[in-house]
Amino acid sequence: MTAPSATSIGRKPSTMAQALSRALRDAMAADPAVHVLGEDVGTLGGVFRITDGLAKEFGADRVTDTPLAEAGILGTAVGMAMYGLRPVVEMQFDAFAYPSLEQLISHVARMRNRTRGALPLPITIRVPYGGGIGGVEHHSDSSEAYYLHTPGLHVVTPATVADAYGLLHSAIASDDPVVFLEPKRLYWSKADWSADAPQEVLPLGRAAVRRTGSSATLITYGPSLPVCLEAAELAVAEGWDLEVVDLRSLMPFDDETVCTSVRRTGRAVVVHESSGFGGAGAEIAARVTERCFHHLEAPVLRVAGFDIPYPPPMLERHHLPSADRILDTVARLQWEEN
């Protein structure tokens, strides 16, 4: 078996996939109300092996291979949550989650509000998302904007191994529904992290400054964080000292951390790989402009995927924000006018 077993997870270095796996296992061990359901999550351990070993450890009643129907998976999770369970649903791929959107938008996001708090739905919806893995069509979508535009949901995405554990832990513990977006291309990213060490409690809705800098702020999340950090290193040669903010949670949105950074640097670029038009970056740029206008030396710019259907794998590198594209954008932040 090539996939990690529960016992090997504590070993260093760990991958994001291992950290997610461990978060699920710890949540299930701590709370019998936590149930995992989805396609292939049982015997196989999920197509990305995030649920590997869980069925064996906790049984088929708590780790359920469902029929292949995403609306049914999320719809039944609603009923399970109504009866006091804490379902963690796996959508196999970003684009495969779309059949579940009606359940998500019309019920999951609204049930607490509809019932004046009588029926909260503590459901975590794990969605492997984003491109950069050479996936064929329907396997590389960045769907965060659809979720973000739905009041009642939390939208969370980790970018580091430690955050993958901490944020998934908090998502499952949340009494609200959380769309938990897992950047596929970071599943195998590694870090010196051990699940057996004391874990930092990560409340949802707090951004993290991943690199301090003084010239401009790169605001990003999920799969684009490593690209931004790479760009920031390359920028040193250009004389720019870039700060990098990892949002971690798109909803709730951490205006405070973002604006504190931008007010200090005076310049901001939002970076994400989903299409720019109507994307999360538009909201972020608007919020930063509204709150930091008098501190800004230049308009807030965006680096995003093009407004095209996700490209075929042999062309996807042209679509995804690169360090070069980020630096080209940073260069347009009106430096010469100072």
């Binding site: 609306a71 999770a77 009923g79």
Partner: peptide, 8 residues
Amino acid sequence: PHAVGLAH
């Protein structure tokens, strides 16, 4: 499906 999930 809510009914099914609750019953389950």
